[in-house]
Simulated scan of single mutants.
Amino acid sequence: MSYQLRREEVVDLAGLQAMLEHSPGQAAQAILAAAGQGVVEAQLLLGQILLDGRGIEQDAEVARRWFQIAAQGGNGMAHNMLGRCLEHGWGGAVDLAQAAIHYARAADSGLDWGMYNLGNLLATGRGLPADQVQALACYEKAAHLGHAKSMNLYGRYIEQGIATACSPARALRWYRRSAESGDFRGMFSLAMVLVERGELEAAGRWLDKARLSGNGNFLRSALASLQAAGPMMTTHALAYAQALKASDPL
């Protein structure tokens, strides 16, 4: 039975998100009803649950359409999610140029995720010409807004002197902020700097935390760095190798 949203009913999005935990099907019907009545935040949430197949049949193509509808209302996160669909080919063709446009609109709305994603395209020259100065500006803005992944990348630009003055001390501070904010790549960046400083015990704690929270792609790249670091990292390299194998047994 479909959920009918009464005209006088107030849409409690926080309540609907909580309902997804224990009654996902019922929550999905309520979200669909609210989205159909033009509630932009519900349209955005509907797109997300369609991507995830949560409480509703997974359908990336329809999810993309709802993100597009929500974006027409100027929602920054909707622009960001539409950009992700376009970047990764979720629900349709990859179009990096259009992804960049939507990330830019999300960034212009003040959304840190939009800044981060636009920075990634600028840094790699995908969808628009590579521009390290503008990529740095995106990461810097998002970092100052508290975006943990951007803190790590901002620190990397500073550490390596990319489009800005090299400052290991400043980079270390941003790596630490990223790590303490929960980003596993930031944890790893901080750990490797601490290794260089000879602070092996503190480095080991951050390496362990990064290993336990990182995904397969991260574990693979981190393992290569640990193996290149020499004998002092052998124990951690073995632990990362085991974690990588467990994450991708095939």
Rank of each mutant, 00 (worst) to 15 (best):
103 Y>C: 02
104 A>K: 13
106 A>E: 00
106 A>L: 03
107 A>V: 04
108 D>M: 11
108 D>W: 10
108 D>R: 14
108 D>Q: 15
109 S>A: 15
109 S>T: 15
109 S>C: 14
110 G>Y: 10
111 L>A: 10
111 L>R: 04
112 D>F: 07
112 D>V: 11
113 W>I: 05
113 W>Y: 15
114 G>Y: 05
114 G>S: 04
114 G>K: 03
116 Y>C: 06
117 N>H: 13
118 L>A: 05
118 L>R: 07
119 G>T: 02
119 G>W: 02
120 N>W: 06
121 L>C: 14
121 L>R: 03
122 L>D: 01
123 A>W: 02
124 T>V: 11
124 T>R: 14
125 G>L: 10
126 R>T: 05
126 R>C: 10
127 G>N: 01
128 L>I: 05
129 P>I: 01
130 A>K: 15
130 A>Y: 13
130 A>F: 12
130 A>T: 13
130 A>G: 14
131 D>I: 08
131 D>C: 12
132 Q>S: 15
133 V>Y: 12
133 V>W: 11
134 Q>M: 09
135 A>Y: 12
135 A>K: 06
135 A>I: 12
136 L>P: 02
137 A>L: 08
137 A>Y: 11
139 Y>D: 01
139 Y>L: 01
140 E>K: 12
140 E>V: 11
141 K>H: 14
141 K>D: 07
143 A>C: 07
145 L>R: 13
148 A>M: 13
148 A>L: 03
149 K>A: 12
149 K>I: 05
150 S>A: 15
151 M>E: 07
152 N>W: 01
152 N>P: 11
154 Y>C: 04
154 Y>F: 15
156 R>I: 11
157 Y>G: 00
157 Y>C: 06
157 Y>V: 07
158 I>L: 10
160 Q>F: 12
161 G>C: 06
161 G>K: 05
162 I>F: 14
162 I>N: 13
163 A>Q: 08
164 T>M: 05
164 T>H: 05
165 A>Q: 12
166 C>P: 09
167 S>R: 04
167 S>F: 02
167 S>M: 06
167 S>P: 06
168 P>S: 08
169 A>R: 14
170 R>K: 15
170 R>E: 13
171 A>M: 02
171 A>E: 00
171 A>H: 01
172 L>S: 06
172 L>K: 08
173 R>Q: 07
173 R>C: 07
174 W>Q: 02
175 Y>H: 00
175 Y>K: 00
176 R>Y: 10
176 R>N: 08
176 R>L: 09
177 R>V: 08
177 R>E: 11
177 R>T: 12
182 G>A: 03
182 G>Y: 02
182 G>M: 00
183 D>L: 03
183 D>T: 02
183 D>H: 07
183 D>F: 08
185 R>K: 15
186 G>T: 01
186 G>I: 01
187 M>P: 08
188 F>I: 04
190 L>V: 06
191 A>T: 09
191 A>L: 07
192 M>C: 10
192 M>V: 08
193 V>K: 10
195 V>Y: 09
196 E>A: 14
